[in-house]
């Protein structure tokens, strides 16, 4: 393999003649927006035998914009619980409807809480700081982690204080 020895010129510009492979892919006819325009018979153009489709053995949510499923899809996390209800509602709307995305965003957060509850239900205390990778944060960004934790605690304390005041 060539060892790269790049040369910068006195004015700071990079001498392209010292760059391995400079210009080897320059092609005035390069038209990457239509990579398959010039197809041949080896690249699956035209008619071909469609491989067998994956069978759905769990509930799947599918965009109302599409008439068929892709050939392969994930089945590891079928919709369930409250988050599942929210996702079912979301998929009744098209992807151009903001409600579709807001419901999915909300469902993700509800699902996170459901996961924590499920952990407790199985007698396991979830290690949330560990799952957030905070050990790495403590090791490599202690001041930032402390500042963020302090900020979160402060906001939470203000919220609690405000709620108490409202109840009075």
């Amino acid at each position: 393999m060539n060892e790269m020895t790049i040369v910068s010129q006195p004015n700071g510009a990079i001498d392209t003649s010292t760059i391995p492979g400079w210009g080897v892919d320059a092609d005035p006819d390069n038209d990457p927006t239509y990579p398959y325009r010039e197809r041949d018979k080896d690249d699956h153009s035209g008619t071909w035998d469609r491989p067998p489709r994956q069978n759905a053995d769990v509930e799947l949510l599918q965009s109302i914009e599409h008439t068929q499923r892709p050939a392969v899809f994930g089945t590891s996390t079928p919709p369930s619980g409250l988050s599942g209800m929210m996702r079912r509602a979301a998929f009744k709307k098209s992807e151009s409807n903001l409600l579709h995305w807001l419901l999915l965003l909300g469902a993700d957060r509800v699902n996170m809480v459901e996961g924590v509850v499920k952990d407790f239900g199985h007698g396991r205390v979830p290690n949330i700081p560990g799952e957030m990778g905070l050990r790495a944060g403590w090791k490599h960004n202690k001041p930032g982690l402390i500042a963020k934790t302090a900020g979160t605690v402060a906001v939470a304390a203000l919220a609690v204080a405000a709620l108490k005041r409202i109840r009075r």
Binding site: M1, N2, M4, G21, G130, E131, G133, A136, G137, N141
Partner: peptide, 29 residues
């Protein structure tokens, strides 16, 4: 093969899969 691109030079961290949460935190932050 021709030495025009050296992808592995971009790898700065090798982390055991069990430690994925910390690896993700390091990368995302």
């Amino acid at each position: 093969k021709n030495g025009h691109i050296e992808p592995k030079k971009l790898i700065t961290h090798k982390v055991p899969l069990d430690d994925v949460a910390n690896a993700y935190h390091i990368f995302s932050r």
